[in-house]
Each structure stands twice: as structure tokens, then as C-alpha cells.
Amino acid sequence: METEIEKSRSFIVVEIIEYVPNAVVIKTIIKKTSGNVSAVSFDSGENLTEKVSPFDTFIQIIEGKAEIWIDDLSQILETGESIIIPAHSRNSIKANERFKMISTIIKSGYD
């Protein structure tokens, strides 16, 4: 079972997750019933298939470059850039080159 990052101890997000050949790796930073924060690494050519989430998702690229699709619109995000994927939007994430990101999902405030 995956555990959260140790609390009250500093860390560098980009260093807590590694690239794995031909894989998408997800490391949980915080997981609560009200939402979660994860660090995610994508090897080149990998992707997350299209989905629809009932919650807003905040994505921040912390290394490399990602292609984010939201309702048939493609956007390229580079290191330091962020985007909010709106709740109920079709979305997918593609790695034309390898990259790392932080994904934050907030589950409160929805009916």
C-alpha cells in the first residue's frame, strides 16, 4: 500500500519521483477524502487516456513539457506552467517527451 510523504519534513517534489521506461508513475503526496495531491512522471510516448472527472484538477508541470487535452483543445505546458482542468470536461494528458507534474484534485464544494 502506498503511503503519503512524511509530514513536517521538507522535500523537493521533482526529486521524489523518478522516470520509469515506458510508464506513468504516480506518487501520492497527500490523500484525503476531500482531495489529493500527487507527483506524476511520464516517460516519452506515454499518456493518460481520456476521462471525465467530476472535480476540478489543478496541473503544474515541474519538469519537461506536457500536452494537455481539454474538450478537444490541445495545449502545451512547459516547466513552471499550470492549468485547471474543469470538472466534467473530457481530458487527457500526453507525453511527447518525458515530464513530471503535480496533480491536485479538490473534491469539496461540489453537489
Rank of each mutant, 00 (worst) to 15 (best):
M1K: 10
M1W: 08
M1G: 15
M1R: 10
T3C: 00
K7R: 14
S8R: 13
R9I: 11
R9W: 00
S10Y: 03
S10I: 11
I12Q: 11
V13N: 10
V14R: 15
V14T: 13
E15D: 13
I17E: 00
E18R: 14
E18A: 11
Y19V: 07
V20N: 12
N22C: 06
A23V: 00
V24P: 03
V25E: 11
V25S: 12
I26F: 06
K32C: 03
S34C: 05
S34V: 05
G35D: 01
N36G: 11
S38N: 12
A39T: 02
S41G: 01
D43L: 04
D43W: 04
S44G: 12
G45L: 08
E46V: 03
E46I: 06
E46T: 13
N47P: 07
L48S: 07
T49K: 14
T49S: 15
K51V: 10
K51W: 11
K51D: 11
S53T: 10
S53C: 05
S53M: 06
F55I: 02
F55Y: 15
F55C: 07
D56Q: 06
D56F: 02
D56C: 04
T57I: 14
F58I: 12
I59Q: 01
I62W: 04
I62D: 06
E63K: 10
G64C: 05
G64W: 07
K65C: 06
I70V: 14
D71T: 06
D71M: 06
D71F: 04
L73Y: 09
L73W: 07
Q75G: 08
E78V: 13
E78I: 07
E78F: 05
E81L: 02
I84K: 09
I84V: 15
I85L: 00
I85Q: 01
I85R: 01
H88Y: 12
S89G: 04
R90W: 09
R90N: 11
I93P: 03
K94C: 09
N96F: 13
E97T: 14
R98W: 08
R98C: 08
K100L: 00
K100W: 00
M101P: 02
M101Q: 08
S103E: 13
S103D: 10
T104H: 09
I105W: 01
I106W: 11
K107R: 15
K107D: 01
K107V: 03
S108I: 15
G109I: 03
Y110E: 08
D111E: 15
D111L: 11
